[in-house]
């Protein structure tokens, strides 16, 4: 990884090994952040539909509140799984 970065950066000044390592950690963390962000976006999109349906069901029948709530937050597992990436990378 560091070697690859060195090659990429050869047209500039040569980089000290520590700087290169910092850079690679930075890239990895940025990648993890994007992964979590995209997962959260997807979860939000999934919840849009489910939430709408849940509100509809609750409007017809109050007993649907708890099942509706549970169904609505199910896609949150996407974000939780995506959080694992942060720990693996970090």
């Amino acid at each position: 990884m560091i070697e690859a970065l060195d090659i990429v950066l050869q047209n500039g000044e040569a980089m000290s090994p520590e700087a290169a390592e910092n850079l690679s950690v930075g890239y990895a963390e940025a990648a993890a952040a994007i992964a979590v962000g995209l997962a959260a976006l997807a979860a939000g999109y999934a919840e849009r539909g489910i939430g709408a349906a849940a509100v509809g069901a609750i409007a017809e029948d109050d007993d649907m509140f708890v099942p509706g709530l549970i169904m609505t937050v199910l896609p949150e597992t996407l974000v939780i799984l995506a959080l694992v990436v942060v720990f693996i990378v970090g």
Binding site: G49, I50, A52, A53, A54, V55, G56, A57, A59, E60, D61
Partner: peptide, 14 residues
């Protein structure tokens, strides 16, 4: 459009 919401209500009434 909001088919999810309408569907949930309609199915309950059905």
């Amino acid at each position: 459009s909001n088919p999810e919401y309408v569907n949930a209500r309609v199915r309950s009434r059905r």
